[in-house]
Design a protein around this nucleic acid. Structure first.
Lengths: 233, 233
DNA sequence: GCCTCTCTTGAGCGAACGATCAACAAGGGC
DNA sequence: GCCCTTGTTGATCGTTCGCTCAAGAGAGGC
């Protein structure tokens, strides 16, 4: 039976019908972020539409393909939430490097300690998309490189031009960074709440880790010094 | 050259046909671990069978459902690789607590710094399975709890019976732990190789983080002391 | 050689997937 | 009131999903 429907039920969709294209698109993007964060990027367009209270083909009116919608999510969640202030903070010569690093991390973690941010990030990594590596490449190049450069100067060590920044030096920052990120991963990806105040936990971690950072940095750079420049005393 | 037979390739499948049930089952489990680690737990049984060089229905001869196969992977990768020696190490009274923690982490990280281990763990977390939370609950209960208990004693602090272990104390260990795990995540989940020796990086992180740990622990426990017991000097 | 046991496969089922298309319907201009 | 633009939907296509089933095929006992 094919019956091209005589009567027709108007629509069971509870969502406000007939939105402007702009509003509908924003609604779809925000719904997609919440939905794909919850179920992973393998989530189904039908279920997404059902949650939005719209028909599934409407998604394809606003985004030609599911991949295009996901690409839009990347822009919305990662590129758009990148704060240019972070790059200014870590270059702020009026502050000691440790304080710059602390302020950057507190701000940065507040941005990424977010259900959608962390889960879509990890999901993209698992699916082999290059978003995570590109994003962390930005952190490395735009945040850690200027920070390490000024840490060299602050400790009266050779500049990166004289002695290139070593992988070990980046790992110093990534180590602390990773400990802070892991706090959110445990809660939002692994599902262990613990009931702790994650911001407070991270502040305590920074208090514990930062005081020794400069000394460790000097030791790492000193160990990598070329013989002609002499060893640490 | 392999030539166990004169001419003629017996089958397009590179996998030896007509294996014993035991061998076939092991082959399927190992193939499934590698495959689902690569593509995530949403991977398809047809593609898994193709990679194994067998027909897809054969999978269902050995595992009644895809979920059962995944459950088997959990046992194989997580429960079976849990090393009872870890629990012995952190209780070894002949070593200082910091050295026990170091030895545990070095061993533990060597186990989990593994493509399949980390990626399936994260994938399970995203899909809402309770494996990650249960597993980290084991680490907390069987490793961190005895360790913190002995750290209390080593620092002449009240025992957990007098003053229960606080969430902050667990976070001290999880902080260092998380920094070490993140080294592997960056490489094996996010796809940033960096070309560093991850074992060496983690050893350096432990060298940087452990010396201050006991002092921080005393400070954390002191701050949580009941007023009657007095404050830190 | 033949039978039997069991490992293995091709064909296929029902459901769900992303994506398409023609038809419907809510506004705004006139 | 009418028309035209445009947001929206039901029906449906081709494919792929997990899973089933009857038939094929290799190894060992006799």
């Amino acid at each position: 039976m094919v019956s091209t429907h005589p009567l027709v039920v108007p629509s069971p969709a509870p969502s406000g019908r007939r939105l402007s294209a702009e509003d509908r698109e924003r609604q779809i993007v925000e719904g997609a972020i919440a939905y794909f964060a919850e179920v992973g990027l393998d989530g189904q367009t039908r279920e997404l539409a059902r949650r939005l209270g719209i028909a599934q083909p409407l998604l394809f009116r606003y985004f030609p393909t599911k991949a295009a919608l996901i690409e839009r999510i990347y822009e919305e969640v990662y590129l758009k939430r990148w704060d240019a202030g972070w790059e200014a903070t870590v270059r702020d010569a009026s502050l000691p490097c440790l304080e710059r690093f602390r302020r950057f991390e507190i701000d940065y973690q507040r941005t990424i300690d977010n259900y959608a941010w962390l889960r879509i990030f990890v999901s993209a990594g698992l699916k082999g998309f290059d978003l995570p590596s590109r994003y962390l490449g930005m952190v490395r190049a735009r945040i850690f490189t200027p920070l390490l450069t000024d840490m060299r100067a602050e400790s009266q060590l050779p500049s990166p031009e004289e002695q290139p920044l070593a992988a070990d030096e980046y790992e110093l920052l990534f180590g602390i960074h990773g400990a802070l990120v892991y706090v959110g991963l445990r809660s939002l990806v692994y599902g262990i709440d613990g009931g702790v105040d994650r911001d407070a936990v991270r502040a305590a971690m920074l208090d514990a880790a930062l005081p020794g950072l400069l000394a460790t940095h000097r030791r790492v750079v000193g160990a990598a010094m070329p013989p002609a420049a002499g060893r640490a005393p």
